[in-house]
Structures are given as C-alpha cells and as structure tokens.
C-alpha cells in the first residue's frame, strides 16, 4: 500500500470509529445535560403513561423496552417539603395527569411530548395520581403513588 493510500484509509477509518462511538455518547451527554438543567439540584422523576397496560410507570418505556417489558406501576418517594420535578410523557395515546388530593391537574399528556411539573408537598402521606381522560380498556386502573415521607420516618 502506498503511504498516501494508507493515510486515506486511516482518516476514513478514524472518522467511522469516531462517529460510531461518539454519537451515542453525544446523545446521552446532551440528554443528561438537559435533565440536569431542569433539575437544578432537585430529584427528577420521569413517568411514562401507558394505555396498553393502564399504568403510570417509572420503568423507561422507549423503543426497545416498550414491546416486551411489563411496566410496574409508578411508586415515587420524596421527602416532605423537598422540591422535586416530574417529567411526564405518554407512549401511545392522549392521557391527562392529576393528583386529586393535592389539587394538581389535570394536565394533558401528549404522546411523545413531555409535561414538566415542579412540585413540593409539605404534608406527609400517600397520594394517588391518576388519568383523567379515557385512554382505553385499562383507564380505570391507571394509578400511581406518590409517597411523601415525613422528617422522622
């Protein structure tokens, strides 16, 4: 191989490898940056609304997990008086999110879009969040829990 050819091959191969490694890293890094900017020190919970099982879940429902992972109902734990952020998205149809006991919502949750809620609950207790728009056969059982833990607990 002539040195010029070798140089060309080397540059081409380096470009390939760089992008193959770099692209996933860049995607992750950008996403983490976005979440960090949103969080500003507060805990962030991402909740996925799923009509097929009728669940709010914190199990990430993305392309490759959506079809064969049975989502567990969300159970979110925060400390009383501590601000936190909920990122809520839907993976299939239109849902609405609300926590009746706290007078939060209902907010529309659109498929593939993110609803961001900045919350703070002072009163310890077990709160249920539910879906306010009929979203299919399992609409009624679509519930998740927000557990607010008091100081001493």
């Amino acid at each position: 191989m002539r040195w010029k050819d070798g140089l060309k091959e080397g540059v081409a191969l380096a470009t390939l490898l760089l992008v193959f490694v770099g692209l996933p890293w860049a995607l992750r890094a950008y996403e983490n940056g976005q979440v960090r900017r949103l969080a500003t020190g507060r805990p962030v919970f991402t909740v996925y609304a799923n009509a097929a099982f009728g669940t709010w879940t914190t199990t990430p429902l993305v392309g490759w997990t959506y079809f064969w992972r049975k989502p567990e109902p969300a159970h979110i734990q925060v400390r009383a008086g501590q601000p936190f952020v909920l990122r809520i998205t839907a993976v299939d149809v239109h849902h609405s999110f609300g926590i009746p006991q706290l007078g939060i919502g209902p907010y529309d949750v659109e498929p593939g879009r993110f609803l961001k809620l900045e919350l703070k609950v002072d009163e310890p207790g077990l709160y249920t969040f539910m879906c306010y728009t009929v979203c299919g056969r399992h609409h009624e059982k679509m519930m998740g829990t927000l557990e607010v833990v008091g100081e001493g607990q």
Partner: peptide, 24 residues
C-alpha cells in the same frame, strides 16, 4: 458516510427514543 451516520442515528433513536412513530 453521511447516510451511514444518519442510519446509525435512526437505529439508536428507534432503540432509545419514544415508541410513538410520528415523534421518532
């Protein structure tokens, strides 16, 4: 080259991105 990268990006998006077709 650009098509290969786009292709790779699309496959990553399909694996990691939303399952909602018109948002992916």
């Amino acid at each position: 080259l650009p098509n290969l990268f786009l292709f790779y990006f699309f496959i990553l998006a399909a694996l990691w991105g939303t399952p909602v077709g018109n948002r992916n």
